[in-house]
Design a protein around this nucleic acid. Structure first.
Lengths: 212, 212, 212, 212
DNA sequence: CATGAATGAGCTTTCATTCAT
DNA sequence: CATGAATGAAAGCTCATTCAT
């Protein structure tokens, strides 16, 4: 979560730029990496393409990163920053679980749609790279636990099917939403946004048996 | 669909072995490919590793395949054959939708568990290779349509939530199951088989509002 | 010159076929070689292409030939046979040197035109292969000597420019004709047959200062 | 025609060196290519032999060239530069056609003799490579047209045989000279320089019927 | 810090040649 | 004699990484 840790957990310990020039170069490389990764995919992306796109010499890459994996990690950091801030639509005060679920699904699918190339890329890398699949796994568990809490709260209030295992259900329903986002916005099976949100919402509600 | 067509849809057109020795070599190569792919992943797998594992000369690879993609396609064919036959548990006569859904989910998750390395591999390749992601997309749509039919039938019988879009719902629920299979048997988030089947079943039933 | 020597002057000494089947296979190989050589050129021609074109197994090639060079030599033999026999238009009795030269040029250019692909091939191989360039060199000298005799005869009869060196002149005028044949029928610089013959004839006559 | 364009007319577009070291390496490669091509011929020349002869790593070849054809083109450029400058013996003012022809033949044959290995190489490549044979064809036509002009001028002045087709004659006489150069300096049929020049000169004069 | 040319390990691919059936 | 699959030497080519300037 701390961006300053992104680059110095590997062997030769590349620099964190201090000069203004250094900062600019590093940012240019990350921006170029995003471009190249989105265009060519992680596997096909070559480091020289990234430096070329960044308009710097190929050797300059190694001033900041040790390899493709490392710049990808830096890109992930940056994107997370981006996605966190504007995203923070405050939903404090909202207590209707249906409205909460709708808002969460809506936000998620919208963000996915907006960043579909990037999401495809992350999916791809998670399939290829141990480190990133582990990261993804951890997030899934953390997210699942948070939602499990919500579900068990509803169950305690008599507001959700008590037969469901909260954690597994949370995982499953989240998996459904994220996979549908992939299917529609990456695999391009054409389904309109409202129909998509409406259907996943209704499946959540029905599945949980939330009393309307 | 015809396995014999698996290797001759590319340019230089490699041979289909006629001699006994040829058949043995080709099979050895496919078996070795499976081994190497499962161990190293599609991207890291080297053709030389495959020939080495098969105990044949490097050049022999090209007697039967043009490249990694082609031997992977052959492997997919073989595995499909394998997975089709034992799968053929006849469910004719079964008319209870809950029993049908349970059986389908149970079979699918069991097969996924048994072949988890392979399924991880297929997932990986679908992320990397245009051709295989297209294949996968087509199957998803076909499968979705079949299940959509089942859902709309239930709706007509007054046996399922009429508000749900049958196709999108079918897609979403299937996505949920397959993704959960991945999460549990590839990403190894530890969830017991019965709990998994039970939960996804119940989500299906609740989501569709199938009268018990 | 003796065709029976064509195949047994190399190391492993391939067979001269005795059975009818053997003769047919060898002939099929040579015919196929001609086809493939003319189509792909000597360098690009692969032995497997020749056997494929001949409709025989790749291994059968080595029953009769050791390598590409050897089958090419055999092809040269065959073609020479072909070109010698029907070609033998008798010009005995003809004593007018102009008529003789015209007939020779006409015959040569016509044959070249008819077999232009083959001639291009021979030219190509002479550029690449020591053995064949040596053969070609010997022929040029022999041919030059024959024509030199004709020229010196004419000079003695006071019928040709006495200043010319007979051998060099013979070589030069023949070179001119054969090179023009190449330029027109291989390089495809478009010049009509009669204009070509007429011009080279007139250059011969003028050059030699043959009294008309 | 512009030497700086020699290397960037192909697909992946290799670099034109900026640093001193880069220039040295590229030149070393071209010099090594000349050496290897002359020694082994175009077909047998291996890229690794060129890099070895240049004393650079095999990969360095691809910094400047995409393949054998491209470095050969670069070599042709360089040699043309070389051959152009010393060649620039001004013959302005000279108006005697016999003197002009003698000078041209003399220069050509001398240059050919000096660079015989290279000329053999060019001849060889023209036989093998479409691109270079086309180049050669174009030059032959352009050169033929220029000489055709000279011949028709002479004809108009009543100074040459009016029966001759200027273009075909020009082509034929040039073909004769260049082929004789090949025969003597590549195929090594031993003819002294003065005898060679004298004979081809006289054939030109006689053929054209230039009044002495 | 930036540059960009040099490096060479590592992989792919071809195809002449062999040889068991 | 014919077959055709197997062999493996020999090239080609890429690209991450280094390092002198």
């Amino acid at each position: 979560m701390n961006p300053s840790e992104a680059t110095d957990d590997e062997r030769p310990a590349r620099i964190t730029p201090r000069s203004r020039r250094g900062i600019r170069t590093k940012q240019a490389l990350i921006a170029a990496a995003r471009e190249v990764f989105e265009r060519d995919g992680y596997v096909e992306a070559r480091i020289t393409d990234i430096t070329k796109a960044a308009g710097v010499a190929s050797g300059s890459f190694y001033t900041y990163f040790n390899d493709k994996e490392e710049i990808f990690a830096a890109l992930v950091e940056v994107v997370q920053e981006e996605m966190l801030h504007p995203h923070l639509r405050e939903r404090t005060g909202e207590s209707d679980p249906r409205a909460l679920i709708d808002a969460a699904n809506r936000d998620y699918l919208q963000a996915y749609k907006r960043n579909s190339r990037l999401m495809a890329l992350f999916e791809q890398v998670a399939q290829i790279n141990e480190k990133f699949s582990e990261l993804r796994r951890e997030r899934a568990v953390a997210f699942g636990k948070r939602n499990a809490k919500m579900i068990s709260d509803l169950q305690e209030q008599g507001n959700a099917d008590p037969e469901l295992d909260p954690f597994v259900t949370a995982l499953a329903l989240s998996a459904m939403v994220s996979r549908m986002a992939y299917i529609v916005y990456v695999a391009k099976i054409p389904i309109g946004f409202e129909k998509l949100v409406g259907t996943v919402n209704r499946i959540w509600f029905n599945a949980l048996r939330i009393d309307s």
